[in-house]
Design a protein around this nucleic acid. Structure first.
Length: 935
RNA sequence: GCAGGAGUGGCGGAAUUGGCAGACGCGCUGGACUUAGGAUCCAGUGGGGCAACCCGUGGGAGUUCGAGUCUCCCCUCCUGCACCA
């Protein structure tokens, strides 16, 4: 998931071989990692399994699982992973059954591109990379339950990814119930038109360099998100997932989630709900007639305008002529309908061929060809300079019967709304620019003030001097005149609906999810084609594994590499008794399979594969029951780990912002489908979400190979130990902030850990470490107990708040207070080690053992603090005169405000400041301060 | 352009949410111990001033006994979206 490009690490300048270790972390750390592993310390059983303790509450803490790249771990990975590890260890010590798993999002482009370059099979590469990542994570001492490790490329895993796809394929979204339902409940005649997974011929984002199509979300500024290669629009037959059906629920159900507001907003904006009206504009009669003589009557597929002329088709299709009688537009400002002075269709709009006049056809065709050649980037970059061509046709404004010209322009997008707009230049910036450029009429129909033009009713021909896009009061708008914008909208919608000219409509920016890729290294679709029809393979035949292929290069034609596997391609119905394919079954030639007359017994497999997102859409469910081979996840396990708490779902999910709209939207969508179909117990997968910030290079710049500021965590572990790396990454600043790396900062926390070590250990002349003689089993003095208990309180609260930097700060304060003590009470040291344990578990375990404990510190209960000990007997209060601190007094904690004021007035320093002045007011805030206000 | 987030010492960052600004760490200065110190320990460290004091949380106004924190205006930086009708 975290797709870290391959990086070359510069030699690590700081580490010199002779460097003396401040404490023997190199011996301590591997030892405790081995202990935790051998004792299965972090293995948590499922309900019903031996050792499961139902009396404990559950806590599910999840990391965004990584894409195991060849470059290994980046210092950014351990940031989030340490945070979740601290939470997981803490919750465990607090008595929770903690689910804290890790796995691999291992399908994807880098492994495949590496394979193309080197010829090494992606499976080999992936296995090596996973081993590398896992070793690195284990060397950082993370308390994962490795029994639950998942890998999206494992057939035992992707079997269920394919199974979930089939559930999408076999369901539809019932608008009445607002839920997914089995396709069998669909009352209409064509189930293929409503499936949640469906085939579409729409134009898609084709990336020649990557040899595949990409989802809208994977295209940034007209370039591929991976690699930055150019992307063009091209019509292709693709699998789509009907995420748009869930648009409203994906917005609404964000509400109860404990997510950063920014991320919620990002998703809401991405889905982009707009309320408005669809208005139908009839074609003006004369333009209708002219269309019959236009050169192209056959409608090419959307987006293929350039090819329209090739297939001349003389047939007049009456239905299509009828369909061309009106052009629907979507508008959020139906109140400005009287100001619509022209209309614009997207150049790709399918009606263009039908309405264009013979005289205008050459210009229109030329413009459409130019648009088709433009990438999305070109199309947006030229935004300042509007372009367009008149079609020669006219439409009738349904409210005032005015004939308005119909243009095409690329500022109208084919995929949004109806792909056509009514242009109101007086009240829309884009229409304004366009109208000014092409000298189209501009009619003012909204006034910012209610006094102007009230009751005018007629048409004002004077053009306004500037564009006004705000809300105001309708003018020159017949029955709407005088109405404020909100009321005018409601009224015009009422009138349109009554007249059958339009209706209230909600439109979303969200598009359906392009779900197929022309790649080798992905999940094959469990779909068969025969006679041009698709159908699911039986679920019993899952997993459908990809064919062994020597050549996994993209074909370059848009056909998927799997098409090269000619044997695999031909479907052998599985013999269900034996589970073996019927190898004796005669194989027809491929051409026979593809022909319409192919016998029903033979079918051709879908050759596209699923995008990398597929596996990451549900991995958190598989963790609940990773070995289950009868279900994608066990019902009981899912109900326990995902249901458990009040809101349900993963209790804490930590990962980078880069997945704010992609992964997190896709996963929520899949989860809702599974929920609707009764397969999971909660409507939302992730209850609480935290985005860790970026770790920048020492130069404050984003880490990148080209800047040469990239750091390898292994080098840090080598020089300072895993505990130092963990602690430093948590000490740098707030988890969610971007913050620059500082190697001297690492040394700082390393020094702190060494001080903790020396709190308990001391070195003899021979350089051997032994228990410090200062460590003694004596009671804590009051001041010591106070700082220790304050530390317990602060660290526990800060962990809950994910405020790790301040927790560490408090532990430093505590350590600094314990160092000068001799004797050092063993109870104080044990308490410190216990709260330090989630942060620096190796050191804490080692010292815990040195202090004579038998069991693991990891299994120790989180200590309670004594609030009594935290209460101050005497409090130092600042005395302010006019808001400036002039003196301080010490008062008993039970002192009354009157007593405090008397003490403050008695101060000689204060007397100097107030001498000769009138005391107007004395503010006493018990426990805080005193402020004396003088004239 | 729109939306969101953020501006605090030389640096990373604290500040019980309206109550002693700068916790903790880095860096720096001085000292101790040392053959040595890039180890460790001690002291100091926002700016100005000999001092009393004054100034100080991007800038400007405001509310308040009191503002880093609340309100309004402005500036800068980061992130996301960007012809979405």
């Amino acid at each position: 998931m975290l797709d870290v490009p391959a990086l070359a690490f510069p030699p690590f300048a700081m580490s010199t071989p002779e460097r003396r270790k401040p404490y023997p972390f190199d011996l301590i750390e591997p030892r405790w990692q081995r202990e935790w592993d051998e004792r299965r310390t972090f293995h948590v059983p499922n309900p019903g399994e031996p050792g499961f303790d139902p009396s404990r509450p559950k806590y599910y803490v999840l990391d965004m699982f990584p894409y195991p790249s060849g470059a290994g771990l980046h210092v950014g990975h351990p940031e989030g992973y340490t945070a979740t590890d601290i939470i997981g260890r803490f919750k465990r010590m607090c008595g929770f059954n903690v689910l804290h798993p890790m796995g691999w999002d291992a399908f994807g482009l880098p492994a495949e591109q590496y394979a193309i370059k080197t010829g090494q099979h992606p499976e080999i590469t992936t296995r090596a990379n996973v081993a590398g990542f896992k070793g690195q994570l284990q060397r950082l001492g993370f308390g994962y339950d490795w029994h639950r490790e998942v890998n999206t490329t494992d057939p035992g895993y992707f079997r269920w990814t394919q199974w979930i796809f089939l559930q999408l394929y076999k369901s539809w979204f019932n608008p009445d119930t607002q839920r997914a339902e089995p396709i069998s409940t669909y009352p209409g005649g064509d189930p293929d038109s409503v499936r949640l997974a469906y085939v579409s011929e729409a134009p898609v984002n084709w990336c020649q360099a990557l040899g595949t199509v990409l989802a809208n979300e994977e295209v940034i500024d007209g370039k591929s998100e991976v690699g930055g290669h150019p992307v063009e629009r091209r019509p292709m037959r693709q699998w789509m997932l009907r995420i748009t059906a869930y648009a409203q629920r994906l917005i609404d159900e964000l509400e109860g989630l404990d997510w950063p507001n920014g991320i919620k907003l990002l998703q809401t904006n991405w889905i982009g709900r707009s309320e408005g009206a669809e208005v139908r504009f009839p074609l003006a009669p004369d333009s209708s007639s002219s269309s019959s003589s236009s050169s192209s009557s056959s409608r090419p597929e959307v987006g293929t305008a350039a090819r329209g002329e090739e297939d001349e088709d003389e047939d007049e299709d009456e239905d299509e002529k009828d369909a061309a009688q009106t052009i629907p537009v979507f508008t959020t400002r139906p109140d400005t309908l009287y100001g619509a002075t022209y209309m614009v269709l997207a150049p790709e709009h399918s009606l263009v061929e039908q309405i264009v006049t013979e005289e205008q056809w050459p210009a229109v065709r030329e413009y459409r060809e130019r648009t088709a050649r433009k990438s999305d980037l070109d199309r947006t970059e030229l935004a300042k300079d509007k372009t367009g061509v008149f079609t020669g046709a006219f439409a009738t404004n349904p409210v005032n019967s005015q004939q308005i010209p119909i243009w095409i322009a690329d500022y109208v997008l084919p995929g949004y709304g109806t792909g056509a707009i009514m242009a109101v230049p007086a009240h829309d910036e884009r229409d304004w620019e366009f109208a000014r450029k092409f000298a189209l009429p501009i009619r003012e129909v909204v006034s910012p003030t209610p006094t102007l033009g009230l009751g005018g009713g007629g048409v004002c021909e004077a053009e306004p001097l500037e564009c006004f896009v705000g809300e105001g009061f309708a003018i020159h708008s017949g029955p709407l005149d005088g109405l404020p914008t909100v009321a005018a909208k409601a009224e015009i919608i009422r009138l349109l609906e009554a007249g059958g000219l339009g209706k209230m409509t909600i439109t979303y920016k969200l598009r359906d999810w392009l779900f197929s890729r022309q790649r080798y290294w992905g999940e094959p679709f469990p779909i068969l084609w025969e006679a041009g029809q698709h159908r699911a393979i039986p679920e019993s035949e899952l997993p459908l594994t990809p064919p062994p292929l020597a050549d996994f290069k993209p074909t370059g034609t848009g056909e998927a590499p799997l098409a090269k596997a000619t044997d695999w391609l031909r479907y052998h119905p599985v013999h269900h008794e034996s589970g073996e394919p019927r190898s004796a079954f005669p194989l027809p030639s491929l051409s026979a399979i593809e022909g319409a007359e192919a016998p029903a017994a033979f079918a051709r497999r879908e050759t596209n594969t699923m995008p990398q997102w597929a596996g990451s859409c549900w991995y958190y469910l598989r963790y609940c029951d990773p070995q289950n081979d009868g279900r994608f996840t066990g019902r009981d396990a899912e109900q326990y780990w995902m249901g458990g708490g009040k809101p349900g779902g993963v209790d804490l999910y930590v990962g980078g912002t880069e997945h704010a709209v992609l992964h997190l939207l896709y996963a929520r969508f899949w989860h809702k489908v599974l929920f609707d179909l009764g397969h999971v117990s909660t409507p939302e997968p992730f209850q609480r979400l935290i985005n860790q910030g970026l770790i920048l290079g020492e130069d404050g710049q984003k880490m990148s190979k080209s800047r040469g500021n990239v750091l390898n965590p292994d080098e840090v572990v080598e020089a300072y130990g895993a505990d130092s790396l963990r602690l430093y990454e948590m000490f740098m600043g707030p988890l969610e902030a971007n913050k620059p790396w500082s190697m001297t900062g690492v040394e700082g926390v390393s020094r702190f850990l060494a001080r903790v070590w020396r709190l308990i250990m001391e070195e003899n002349q021979a350089g051997e470490w032994g228990l410090s003689t200062a460590v003694q089993d004596v009671p804590m003095e009051k001041a010591t107990a106070k700082i220790v208990h304050a530390t317990i309180k602060k660290v526990g609260e800060d962990i809950e708040d994910l405020s790790f930097n301040t927790a560490i700060s408090k532990m430093m304060v505590c350590t600094n207070a314990l160092i000068p003590l001799n004797p050092r009470p063993i109870a104080a040291l044990r308490a410190l080690l216990t709260v330090l344990n989630p942060f620096a578990p190796h050191l804490a375990e080692e010292l815990w053992e040195k202090l004579g404990a038998t069991g693991l510190l990891a299994d120790v209960q989180w200590p309670a603090y004594d609030p009594e000990l935290l209460i101050e007997d005497e409090i130092e209060l600042p005395i302010q005169v006019n808001g400036k601190v002039r003196d301080k007094i010490v008062v008993k904690k039970e002192a009354t405000p009157a007593e405090i004021e008397a003490l403050a007035r008695a101060s000689t320093r204060i007397a100097e400041w107030t001498a000769g002045k009138e005391i107007r007011k004395v503010v006493v805030v018990p426990g805080r301060l005193i402020n004396i206000v003088v004239a």
